[in-house]
Design a protein around this nucleic acid. Structure first.
Length: 328
DNA sequence: ATGGTTTTTACTGCGTC
DNA sequence: GACGCGGTAAAAACCAT
């Protein structure tokens, strides 16, 4: 294992994080060594180049790694060399202006009362603008993510809309710290899709997200609880239309599958079973009853459920749906 | 952490095309 | 013989305690 720990490069590749900018004013005193032109700093690439001749004056002068978590004694020593922890999560990478709290002027003289009050106001507004700005950037990125994933699924705008609303609320309630933007964005979309009765399973969501399934599940639970989102347990029937159209089955099958599901629900054999499995099984069963050929394998593929589950479920479903009263 | 439930994985046997 | 289907046992995942 290497000691070098790079930033989470999930978002747009690594953004450089100039943690030690404030040390001294480097930019002003020297121009380009070649042509003496003005220097340009490209933060994204971490390069300082000459605006005139393009010479790269300085590159990679920056530590990318916020090693703010120590997992052993060694790292504990090393982590001391970094500055603020969450650089990438602050829209300004910790580079924004702060107005000092001492009411002194540049020479160290105390300010007059009038000036002090002025500084007070400036501090306040500076802070306000800064945080507001940061939230907006955050939002922008998150909404981009949501948009991307939603369109990957072909989900309608309305779902994106509610997903954004959920995200905004999460942001407003300060649920973000400690969680990744993408994780929360994904969770928001997941919740929105469920609420709109066009659910996508956790696995599906995870497949288009940059965050792994486990984190999405965790984040989703958390967000849903904190925002007390009322998300009813997924109705298996809401998967049926999609599966049917993916398998190119007729509307008859679709209707049949729904009937089977309600019958199964009445028989009380659905509780505790995974909604996706039930939906898949009912579609398969319905296709069977309607004489439209589908293999278990095909159904299991589009539904992402194992064939075994389909088998087990569809037996139960047929027992319950065929003649009511057979099962105990 | 633990135990119970559900789902998945992997394997086997049977019948059909 | 490959394929679809059915069953089973053990492993894994999930959930509540």
């Amino acid at each position: 294992m290497t000691n070098q720990r790079t930033t989470r490069d999930g978002s747009h590749g690594t953004e450089s994080v100039p943690t030690q900018r404030s040390r001294e004013s480097t930019d002003e005193d020297h121009g380009c060594p070649e042509c003496n032109g003005d220097l340009v700093t490209d933060e994204d690439r971490g390069e300082t180049t000459c605006g005139e001749c393009g010479l790269v004056v300085e590159e990679d002068g920056i530590d990318h790694g916020p090693e703010w978590r120590a997992f052993n004694a060694q790292e504990q020593d090393e982590k001391s060399r970094v500055g603020a922890p969450t650089t990438n999560m602050m829209h300004d990478k910790g580079l924004s202006t702060n107005i000092g709290w001492q009411d002194k002027d540049a020479y160290g003289n105390t300010l007059s009362g009038r000036q002090r009050r002025k500084m007070q106001r400036l501090r306040k507004w500076n802070e306000r603008f800064r945080t507001r700005n940061s939230k907006e950037r955050n939002l922008k990125q998150a909404l981009g993510e949501i948009e991307r994933m939603a369109s990957a699924f072909g989900l309608p705008d309305s779902v994106r809309e509610t997903a954004s609303v959920i995200y905004r609320r999460a942001l407003g309630e300060d649920l973000l710290p400690g969680r990744s933007i993408e994780g929360v964005a994904t969770s928001a979309l997941y919740a929105a899709a469920r609420q709109a009765n066009t659910p996508r399973s956790l696995d599906e969501v995870a497949s288009v997200s940059r965050v792994d399934r486990g984190e999405i599940a965790r984040t989703y639970r958390y967000v849903a609880r904190e925002l007390s989102l009322e998300v009813a347990p997924t109705d298996p029937a809401s998967y049926v239309p999609r599966f049917c159209s993916d398998l190119e089955l007729s509307g008859d099958v679709e209707r049949r599958a729904r009937d089977l599901l309600t019958a199964a629900a009445d028989a009380g054999i659905t509780s505790g079973k995974s909604p996706v499995g039930l939906a898949a099984a009912s579609v398969y069963a319905a296709a069977l009853l309607t004489n439209e050929r589908v293999t278990q394998n095909e159904v299991s593929t589009v539904a992402n459920v194992s064939e075994v589950t389909i088998r087990n479920r569809y037996h139960e479903i047929l027992d319950a749906g065929g003649e009511p009263g057979v099962e105990a």
